[in-house]
């Protein structure tokens, strides 16, 4: 019964959408993907998500390291606040960023008014929104691994005169690398499909700030079914592949925990 619930809820819709995208043959499918507006949306989504994943990999690892290795005032509050982006609706995140980076916002005035650097309705806003939403992913992937790590190796390295940076790079990093990687990939997968936050901060300007998910929405609204189905299948294949890779990485690590 539990399995048929899963089949009904997950498998049938997946099959239906793939069928629909290839309904008129694979040539029509590819021409729908390589249309300028679709191709631009896909490229924009991929590169902004990749930039986010790289930044998130660094800041997430740093945050996890600080939370595990140091004791300081307000640590448990900080640890709780890490999960905040999981709890706040992503659309609300978008609203807050629009205020902050808008023409009258604190940072919008500075960046756009003083530096003439457009943030809102442009790629930088997409990256910031994706960073906000995916912040907990890498932290929560690295933190448990770091906690189980044996401290004595680091001490040995330090005693033998290795600099802190070298100790981190050669002793700590190799053991947490798979966890960082799977966190980055998972945040990348989530970023590819993000809609709520992006649709608000990026607007819906084709070729300029329209991401893949926003493109699908636009195609649904204008009742271009083939276009929507084709892009949906691309997103579907990408996220399914990434999820399987993350699953594989985590199994290799020996952890039984799925991605959060």
């Amino acid at each position: 019964m539990a399995l048929s619930y899963l089949a009904f809820l997950v498998v049938i819709p997946l099959v239906a959408i793939c069928y629909d995208a290839f309904r008129e043959g694979s040539q029509v499918f590819f021409s729908n993907i390589f249309r300028p507006s679709a191709w631009a949306a896909l490229k924009l989504t991929l590169w902004t998500s990749a930039v986010m994943a790289l930044i998130n990999g660094v800041t997430g690892t740093l945050t996890a390291y600080v939370l595990v290795r140091y004791e300081f005032f307000g640590k448990s509050l900080l640890n709780t606040l890490v999960d905040l982006p999981f709890a706040i609706p992503s659309l609300v995140t978008g609203v807050m960023l629009v205020i902050l980076y808008g023409p009258e916002g604190l940072l919008g005035e500075f960046f756009t008014g003083t530096l003439h650097w457009q943030i809102l309705f442009a790629p930088p806003a997409i990256i910031v929104a994706l960073l906000f939403i995916n912040f907990p992913v890498v932290v929560r992937s690295v933190q448990p691994v770091l906690e189980e790590l044996d401290y004595s190796q680091e001490e040995a390295a330090a005693t033998l005169g290795a600099s802190p940076w070298r100790t981190f790079r050669q002793v700590v990093l190799p053991s947490i690398r798979p966890a960082i990687l799977s966190g980055m990939l998972l945040s990348f997968a989530r970023a590819l499909g993000e809609f709520g936050a992006v649709v608000i901060v990026a607007g819906n300007l084709p070729l300029l700030s329209q991401t893949a998910a926003v493109y699908v929405w636009g195609e649904i609204e204008s009742e271009n079914r083939l276009g929507a189905s084709a892009m949906s299948v691309v997103l579907l294949v990408l996220s399914f592949t990434l999820v399987l890779v993350v699953d594989y990485l985590q199994r290799k690590r020996g952890g039984s925990h799925g991605p959060r």
């Binding site: 899963l6 997946l14 590819l192 709520g196 699908v216 997103l235 999820v243």
Partner: peptide, 17 residues
């Protein structure tokens, strides 16, 4: 693997399906 899919799949695509 299917279990994790709703984590990563775009919400718009879910609605569209």
């Amino acid at each position: 693997g299917l279990l994790d899919l709703p984590f990563a799949l775009s919400a718009v695509v879910v609605g569209y399906m």
